[in-house]
């Protein structure tokens, strides 16, 4: 049984989330403040935290920072539409994903499943991953499209690897830049965009109807292709 800690100061939202999540077989704990959230993350040891950013006592980003001090549990941020800055700050502080209020329950559940699956320990990353026509062999750094070898530059490959090893996760500009280009980077979104564009082209992904990489304007990118594990999981 998966335990979920719901942190929101609105009783109606807590009740709605509890009802829906319990109906889907989750065990739900709810709290209304940031302090309780940090304590709850330690004592309840949940497998997932749903965190509202607008809490009365602590800033949501601060909660994430404190929780990240002792656990890597997946955190999904619930935020209102306009909190673009808050979203990026929360993601950069260590949140795994965000869902915009008001949200559809099925969307939240899908994000929750993906986040918990990524956090599953002990399961090594499969050396070869298949996404439809695309196959990525991370052990041998080989990429094939329609069983034909695909030539990627080293940077393009590193970018692709960052994506396929974090399926479904929203990767911020800063995170991707540091991972692919190095620690000194973080604001050079133009580089990133150029390479994402090139990568999309080589992978045959249409940005206007993406099946592999989805753009989150002003935030980052998400690898949405259904992998073999994802297919078996749901």
């Amino acid at each position: 049984m998966n335990r979920v800690l719901v942190v929101d100061d609105e009783p109606q939202i807590r009740r709605a989330l509890r009802t829906s999540l319990e109906a889907h077989g989750y065990e739900v704990q709810t709290v209304g403040t940031g302090e309780e959230a940090v304590v709850g993350a330690a004592e309840v040891a949940p497998e997932l935290m749903l965190l509202d950013l607008g809490l009365p006592d602590l800033d949501g980003t601060e909660v994430i920072r404190r929780v990240r001090g002792f656990t890597e549990l997946p955190i999904i941020v619930l935020s209102v539409r306009d909190g673009q800055h808050d979203k990026v700050a929360a993601l950069d502080a260590g949140a795994d994903d965000y869902v915009t209020k008001p949200f559809a329950m099925e969307e939240l559940l899908a994000r929750a499943r993906a986040a918990m699956r990524r956090a599953q320990p002990g399961e090594p990353v499969a050396p070869t991953m298949r996404f439809g026509r695309l196959e990525v062999d991370v052990a041998r750094r080989l990429v094939t499209l329609d069983d034909e070898p695909l030539r990627l530059t080293p940077t393009e490959y590193q970018l692709l690897e960052a994506f396929v090893t974090n399926p479904g996760k929203l990767l911020t500009h800063q995170w991707l830049l540091r991972r692919v280009w190095g620690q000194g980077y973080g604001t050079e979104t133009t580089y990133l965009r150029t390479y994402v564009r090139a990568l999309r082209k080589k992978l045959g992904d249409d940005a206007q109807a993406p099946e592999l990489i989805v753009t989150e304007p002003g935030v980052g990118y998400r690898w949405v292709a259904e992998g073999p594990e994802a297919g078996a999981g749901s």
Partner: peptide, 12 residues
């Protein structure tokens, strides 16, 4: 920001 990218996202 790339205007083209915004158009693509909105169209998607």
């Amino acid at each position: 920001t790339s205007m083209g990218e915004i158009v693509e996202v909105v169209l998607a």
